[in-house]
Simulated scan of single mutants.
Amino acid sequence: MRETSEYTPRIAETALGPVEYAVVGTGAPVVVVHGTPGGIDAAALMARILPRDGIAAILLSRPGYLGTPLGGNATIDRQADLLAALLDHLGVDRAGVYTWSGGGPAGYRLAVRHPRRVTAIAANAACRRAYRAPPEDLPTRLMFTTAPGRWLLRALAAHSPERYIEGALAGEGDLTEDQLAARVAEVFTDPARRRFVLDLGETTFRDRHRRTGYGNDLDQLAAITSLDLETITAPTLVVQGTADSDLPPDDSTFAARTIPGAEVLLLDAGTHLALYTHPDAEAVQRRVVDLLLRAADR
């Protein structure tokens, strides 16, 4: 395990198996559930929007990623139960859930299967139905699965960051040429947004440390029939970019219509990274934090 300036990873021996985790900050507990691919490092990037003096962000690697073995926790429901087991290990009775993309189903099912444990849900472009990844061409596969591809992406991020950001945003959204150029300029000139996009790349390599989790995610996401969203009782905020090419925006609008009392915030011309890169990102991030804090006080 590699210690970073943002978190110190540990292994929790829970009732359902080992989980790589870290707790960052103090205050209301919030489980941060990363997407596909990802790991605890991706959760740490997500948690940058959470105040360290108000929220204790519980970062983790989902099964098959980095330091958390897949073991018997392959299914979405087992992953949800593993999140509850981690809370048990930490002595946390109730926590908020902040989830993104392919981590959405596990976050939603935690609220369905363990309703008293969840104070609120902040769902960012969260998958809610069967998802099948589009075909991947050979150059893209080589870029994200081989050592030379990793070296090339790292070199691009280090020496041509603006071009790197352009590629990341183009790959995660259906933006016009003018929209893309404007968004790249906005992200490149904002230190927090630029750092997020550049750092995110390291969490997307499908090497031996993430390959098992990624393959399992694709299998489990494709097999979704219903997440029983209508049974969720926790206050829920759904965030979605309208130009997201990775997750159909209807996943979020449907979830907001189905979860009782849920609210949806649509970011116009927002990509899959909208919560972190959109011009309105800071305002929406404040809404996310406000929900998580208000719910913790109830």
Rank of each mutant, 00 (worst) to 15 (best):
A80K: 10
R62D: 05
R154V: 15
G149V: 15
D244K: 03
E6L: 09
M143V: 12
P29Y: 00
R210F: 04
R109L: 04
L16T: 00
V92D: 06
S101L: 05
R132A: 13
L180Q: 14
L156T: 12
R195P: 05
I55D: 00
D297L: 05
L275D: 12
F205I: 10
V23S: 02
G35Y: 01
V288G: 08
G171Y: 11
E172F: 14
P135E: 11
A274K: 10
R109D: 01
L16A: 06
V238E: 05
L142E: 12
T212I: 14
A234M: 00
I224Y: 07
R2F: 11
G39Q: 01
T204L: 13
D297P: 04
L86G: 04
H159V: 09
A234T: 02
Q220Y: 08
V33S: 00
G241L: 03
R286Q: 13
P115T: 03
A222Q: 08
L59Q: 03
H209E: 15
S160R: 15
H278K: 06
D217I: 11
C127Y: 13
V264W: 08
D174S: 11
D77E: 10
R206M: 10
P115I: 01
T99P: 06
T99E: 02
A74K: 13
A192G: 05
L66Y: 10
D290V: 13
T253I: 14
V288Y: 09
P115E: 03
V184P: 00
R195W: 08
V264C: 15
G38Y: 00
R194P: 04
L142N: 13
P18G: 01
C127F: 15
T189S: 05
L110G: 02
R294F: 04
T99D: 07
A84I: 04
G167I: 11
M46A: 08
D190K: 06
V118T: 04
